[in-house]
Simulated scan of single mutants.
Amino acid sequence: MTTTRLPKTITAGALLATPIPPVKWIIPGLLPAGLAIFAGPSKAGKSWLTLWLCLQISQGKSVWGREIEPRTVLYFSLEDTLGRLQERLYQLVDAEEDPERLILQTESHGIGQGLEEQIVSFIHTYPDISLIVIDTLQKVRKGDQNGSMYANDYRDIGALKELADKYGICILLVHHLRKQSSSDPYDQISGSTGIMGVADTTWLMHRQRMSKTATIRVIGRDMDEKMLHIREENCVWTLDEEETAEQQALKAIPDYLWKVADYIDSVG
């Protein structure tokens, strides 16, 4: 379950000659092992989407056209009751299915107050675990007012990243966005830049209230940026379109600029 550890100091030549294990993907091309943030507006459907993803991964079912290896998943649904989770599962799970690899938990300790030990205990109990979701991040923060917001964010998120890296799993933190807009969409993540600074992968969800469609901007250390256009149908989010960063950049160029460019090219 643990990852291959290199020595703390190594020469560049030795590193070039050392075989490094490939990236471990929980969702190929979208969610690797490590610390991940899934941020979006309040009441945007993050919990529904997260529960569906947990079900798909635990049962080895495809996610948006990507094949998944079935693994145990632990979902800390800290803003829900077991009754509410049961109602959602009734809408997401077929009668003949038995998603026994999805472990649900509605209570947890805080970061630095027993959560890390709780996670390690689950990992030892379920050695094939690949994903742990904490919904929401704020529920496991202890609200320490000492030090700067950046330092507190970096310390708390860093403690969970250390566990993810040590055991070769993904820990996904569901989080909120600020209400004020920003020219950089990632600046809308609630808290300081320390949160995204620690994260290996960030999912940023945007959805207009009551809309059936949404977008998820995906960025990470192990992948190029992507934009997912998704649609909600019967409580399940399906993929309409997936764009690369290059495709997004081309789409952002107004049509009249292409016409001007074509004209300049035609006249030399």
Rank of each mutant, 00 (worst) to 15 (best):
L137S: 01
K259W: 06
G34P: 00
P41M: 12
M227I: 03
Y150F: 15
A199C: 15
L35H: 07
D153Y: 07
W64L: 01
Y90P: 00
Q105N: 13
L55T: 03
F122P: 00
R207H: 11
Q56P: 01
G220I: 08
K212S: 05
D98L: 11
D224F: 08
F38V: 10
I189Q: 00
S148V: 06
S121T: 15
Y90E: 13
Y186T: 13
I111Q: 12
L163E: 03
T215D: 14
L16G: 02
S47L: 12
W237P: 04
G158E: 01
A151Y: 04
Q145I: 09
L172A: 05
T193G: 14
Y186N: 09
K179E: 12
N152P: 02
S47G: 09
K8Q: 13
A17M: 15
T2E: 14
G143A: 13
K251D: 11
N146L: 15
Q188A: 13
E162D: 04
G197S: 04
E67Q: 14
L172G: 03
C54S: 10
S148H: 05
L6T: 11
I219E: 12
I134L: 13
Q138M: 08
A249E: 03
K161G: 02
E225N: 13
D224M: 11
G114L: 09
Y154Q: 06
C235S: 15
L173Q: 00
G34L: 11
Q113M: 03
P21E: 14
G220Q: 03
L104V: 12
I123M: 02
A95V: 15
E246N: 09
E116T: 03
I216T: 07
R217P: 00
L257W: 03
N146F: 12
M227Y: 08
G45Y: 06
H175I: 07
D94K: 08
T81D: 04
E97C: 07
L239H: 10
K142T: 10
P32I: 03
S42I: 10
A261Q: 12
A44W: 10
L115C: 10
L51W: 01
P19Y: 09
I68T: 01
W237I: 01
G29D: 00
E242V: 12
A44E: 08
W258N: 02
E232F: 11
V63C: 07
L131V: 12
N152Q: 09
Q145P: 04
N152C: 01
T125I: 02
I189V: 12
T9R: 10
R5C: 14
P32E: 05
R221V: 06
C54A: 05
P70M: 09
T125E: 11
I195K: 11
T213C: 02
V198G: 00
Q113D: 15
Q56C: 13
G220S: 14
L53Y: 01
V218N: 08
A164K: 06
L250Y: 15
S148A: 02
G65N: 06
L131S: 06
D165T: 06
D255A: 04
S192W: 11
D153S: 06
L15R: 00
A214V: 12
S47D: 04
N152I: 08
L74F: 09
R155I: 01
L55M: 14
S62R: 02
G65K: 06
G114E: 14
I103R: 10
L172F: 03
S266V: 04
I103T: 11
P21F: 07
K46T: 09
I169Q: 04
D135T: 04
G112N: 14
G40H: 04
L115K: 05
K43I: 11
A249F: 11
K179S: 06
H206A: 12
L204F: 08
T81E: 11
M227C: 08
